[in-house]
Design a binder for these strands. Sequence first.
DNA 1: CCGATATGATTGATGCGTCAAGTTAAGTTA
DNA 2: TAACTTAACTTGACGCATCAATCATATCGG
Lengths: 179, 179
Amino acid sequence: MEAHASAEGIAAVDDAVREPQWLDAREREVWLALRHLLWGLQPAVDRQLLRDSGLSGPEYSVLATLSEDPDGVVRAGEAARNLGWGRSRLSHLLRRMEAKGLISRACSPEDGRGQDIALTPAGRSAIIDAAPGHVEFVRSVVFEPLTSDQQDALRDACQRISAAIEASGECDIACGEEP
Amino acid sequence: MEAHASAEGIAAVDDAVREPQWLDAREREVWLALRHLLWGLQPAVDRQLLRDSGLSGPEYSVLATLSEDPDGVVRAGEAARNLGWGRSRLSHLLRRMEAKGLISRACSPEDGRGQDIALTPAGRSAIIDAAPGHVEFVRSVVFEPLTSDQQDALRDACQRISAAIEASGECDIACGEEP
DNA sequence: CCGATATGATTGATGCGTCAAGTTAAGTTA
DNA sequence: TAACTTAACTTGACGCATCAATCATATCGG
């Protein structure tokens, strides 16, 4: 996650291999700012959530996904797809969340392999309690410091970078659709 | 990490508490794009690193920090400060890295509490091998998709958001300086 | 109907990060 | 010098994510 040349070490690289195009000062500043955001925003959001409502970031995401369904019931695989997560990751998290009473699991009646994930009353009230503070925090750190134009520019940049990541094949999950 | 209202659950909130200012459609799109980037970029960079050079993202960061010193020797606490990490985090990582032979540790002669972290030859060659591919990947996913102006706008936005996070007190480490 | 393969989900091992103690060495005061 | 405080680092427990392996159910081709 560094990408700067930083003299030493790197300068000693074998001359036989073509030198890559190192970042110049301006680029390094861009990368530094982006990395700072990457390292800082997610933990800050998660920390606010945990402190104010006892929910971890991933737990909140799952509850939010479930709460979008009128019945609060979603197939596990579908939830994983919506979240852009792997099945394993969701499974581990659901086990912990079930133990806490936030969600419940039951075999799907239509497909014996699937699991129906359901929001429990406790889970529903947990996200209802958590949502306002979460939104306010997000608003205060990402929207208030930026003008509308800056927000739009940020969105564009994020979308372009995300597209490049997916094109690079280094994407986490489900980069393509066709079999 | 959601911040959208998403009907249901949230709409049922007690009328006694003042409704927060939910995100509108445009804002939701901005937040979605940003979250997508947050969830995607870091893993993608780490994955490229691990696949092409066997180094994890955090390991690379540590090696990069060490390689900035002429002797490849840095005090643990100083390294933690440079990286913006907690001591504990660094300590755990250093233990694993020492076991792999990437770095070595020795009690500081001037301060018996401190540890001097040193780059081993293996560590030095590891980062020399890893750096070019890393820079090229970063260049391809964050710089190539953006014009210079877009890069600058991204930098500004990141800096503003990071500043807001630090101002919020929800910052990870070392938010203030004065005792 | 049966075996081969697909798919949905779980499990276990390992690395990573955080938090809350703990340990040891330095400084500080008396 | 003895006692207190502060600072640097380590440790252990726990939650979280990934990977590879496993298991069970569906589905398809014969």
